[in-house]
């Protein structure tokens, strides 16, 4: 069922909260992978608040849907969602990156409730997701596995090893997202090493491929529902996004892959996000 206007409004408000939380935590922790955390946010919000079959009170529930953030550097954004969703007291995020904190910039599945896999080194998440999807079949469990990759991460060969295997095994209980913000650390992906056509590459590996605006909840919802309905093959949703989305001073700027905020920049960033959402919500 397509998202209703009310649902989209609710998710939009939630994305506003999460973007504010990412900025606040970046300020307190000294620095974060803020650009990619802001670009991935709307897909994560749609998943965690609408589509994942999960119960934050039972993070180890065997039948839960799984989500893996293969672009593990988006950990501050993922943790902001997990905390808000109730996996842990989000006040704990004030210790993000601090010595002895359970929260480092790449989340640890043994320390952070709701984190289904420790990621950070790029190129690992899709293979783990393939294992979970095959595992769901072997154990007769009906859970679905979702994984989000960065676009720069598609340079990694292990992604394509896992893509071959997922296509071969016709894993229609697996949905992958590509956070296609177009930038890696050193600049635009297509200048550094050509990734396009991403959709055609996945299709050639036996996948269904959809391309959407990764900040448009109607499109995100429709694509997830379409992916869930695909039979006989896995589905990738290529989400066209903006690195630093919602913060004018960061949007589309590669140096904001990682950065810190002083109080002035924090205030500017919050004001920018607030302006963005006031316009959006009317």
């Amino acid at each position: 069922m397509p998202l209703t206007r009310e649902e989209i409004r609710g998710l939009t408000k939630k994305a506003w909260d999460i973007r504010r939380a990412i900025i606040e935590t970046t300020f307190t922790c000294g620095g974060s992978h803020i650009g990619g955390s802001l670009s991935q946010t709307d897909v994560l919000v749609a998943l965690y608040y609408r589509y994942l079959n999960i119960d934050p009170a039972r993070p180890g529930w065997e039948d839960r849907d799984r989500f893996i953030l293969s672009k593990g550097h988006g950990g501050i954004g993922w943790a902001s969602v997990l905390g808000d969703r109730g996996y842990f007291d989000k006040a704990l995020l004030k210790d993000f990156n601090k010595t002895g904190s359970p929260f480092g910039m790449h989340l640890d599945s043994l320390k952070v409730k709701g984190c289904d896999a420790s990621t950070g080194s790029l190129g690992h998440g899709l293979a783990i997701a393939v294992g979970l999807a095959i595992g769901a079949r072997l154990t007769g469990k009906g859970f679905r596995t979702y994984v989000m990759m960065g676009d720069g991460e598609l340079c990694e060969g292990t992604i394509w090893e896992a893509a071959i295997l997922a296509g071969h095994r016709k894993l229609d209980n697996l949905t992958a997202f590509v956070d296609r913000n177009g930038l890696m650390i050193d600049g635009p992906t297509e200048q550094i090493t050509t990734l396009e056509p991403i959709d055609e590459k996945f299709k050639a590996f036996g996948w269904e491929a959809l391309t959407i605006d990764g900040h448009d909840f109607a499109q995100i919802g429709e694509a997830i529902e379409q992916a869930q309905a695909v039979r006989g093959k896995p589905c990738v949703i290529i989400c066209k996004t903006v690195k630093g989305k919602g913060v004018d001073l960061m949007e589309n700027k590669a140096p904001w892959h990682y950065g810190g905020l002083n109080s002035d920049l924090r205030d500017q960033a919050l004001a920018s996000v607030d302006r963005h959402y006031r316009e959006l919500l009317g």
Partner: peptide, 28 residues
């Protein structure tokens, strides 16, 4: 045969996949 997976010549994704299978409750 139903509990046997040959991934082809792809060791790196094989070990990642094994991690996922263990997380799904299996004994890889």
């Amino acid at each position: 045969p139903d509990r046997f997976i040959n991934v082809g010549i792809a060791e790196n994704s094989m070990f990642g996949m094994a991690a996922g299978l263990a997380q799904a409750g299996l004994r890889p």
